[in-house]
């Protein structure tokens, strides 16, 4: 990984009323889970204080960057930090993978955004995380447990080497199921196979929460639909501002109903969400995204 040369980082020096001091948004910890997945722990005491499970932040890594939404995967109110787990899929996330090192600041982090999850002691609840959704489902797992619910955690990875945070999940889950595509760890199969197992064992499951790629969340919703289990999914449409003023993140629910994921969501009833529409709208900038990666890769490092 090369150094962050030619990059405009802005140190932010600001004062706000006491107790709400916005510090420089500094990266205090980084962990690489795989060649494409990395964790950044960021110092931002105000967001750490306000964050609730289910919320997200909008990050700009540098001044000429774009605004990307990232779900808050963990928050530590005491140390004033929040944790983001990022998958390097496009130009911005790849560039961040290269440049966001411990001690470097981010240009801007805004949040928390979105409606918090509705957490309560609902009895038995299943929390499903797949792919990049494993990390962001963790705050809900912890919150459900702390609310007194019986929590069944189900996570999916391609193989054993990609597994992370299993210790964190075990700490708060009453039952924990790992699914892997190749069977190298846990049960062989997809998260939906895990859900089927859980439902067979516990016919009294009341709620299910799924976070991951749209296709996975859709499969989860279809798995629970025949059982009538309330299913919540966390949607990840294209966003710009994250404050409800552009409608770029609009999602289609049920009978052509329009909601903005940034202010009405990002969590919605999985049985109402039009996933075909979501998946189509995520392809909106595929041409530009490809161009951005190509151009960025061409630049000599």
């Amino acid at each position: 990984m090369s150094s962050s040369k030619n990059r405009k980082f802005h140190q932010i020096n600001s004062s706000t009323p006491e107790g709400y001091h916005a510090c420089a948004i500094e990266i205090v910890r980084r962990e690489d889970f795989s060649d494409v997945t990395y964790l950044l722990e960021i110092r931002h005491p105000m967001i750490a204080k306000a964050a609730q499970p289910g919320q997200f932040v909008i990050v700009m890594s540098h001044e000429d960057g774009e605004r990307i939404p990232l779900t808050i995967a963990d928050f530590d109110r005491e140390n004033g930090t929040i944790t983001l787990v990022i998958q390097a899929v496009g130009k911005t996330t790849k560039e961040m993978q290269r440049d966001c090192l411990v001690g470097t600041p981010l240009y801007s982090v805004t949040g928390p955004m979105g409606e918090p999850s509705h957490i309560s002691n609902v009895g038995k609840v299943v929390c499903v995380g797949g792919g990049l959704g494993v990390a962001p489902v963790f705050p809900q797992v912890r919150a459900y447990k702390q609310a007194g619910a019986y929590v069944i955690g189900i996570v999916g990875f391609r193989n054993k080497d990609l597994v992370f945070w299993d210790d964190k999940f075990l700490q708060y889950c009453d039952e924990f199921i790992i699914c892997s595509d190749d069977g190298s760890v846990g049960i062989k199969g997809r998260v939906t196979d895990g859900i089927q197992r859980a439902i067979e064992k516990h016919p009294d499951i009341r709620e299910l929460l799924a976070i991951g790629p749209p296709i996975m969340m859709q499969a989860c919703a279809e798995t629970t639909r025949p059982y009538g289990i309330k299913t919540t999914v966390s949607l990840n449409p294209v966003m710009v501002d994250g404050t409800g003023m552009c409608g770029g993140c609009r999602v289609k629910l049920g009978d052509n109903k329009m909601k903005f994921a940034c202010v009405d969501g990002p969590e919605f009833d999985g049985h109402q969400v039009d996933f075909t529409d979501l998946i189509n709208r995520l392809k909106r900038f595929s041409k530009e995204e490809k161009l951005a990666v190509e151009k960025w890769t061409d630049i000599p490092k």
């Binding site: 709400y20 916005a22 306000a50 805004t110 949040g111 928390p112």
Partner: peptide, 13 residues
């Protein structure tokens, strides 16, 4: 006048 950017009032406080 102090200007604090990146501050979403309603959510941050």
């Amino acid at each position: 006048v102090k200007i604090e950017c990146n501050t979403l009032v309603g959510r941050l406080f």
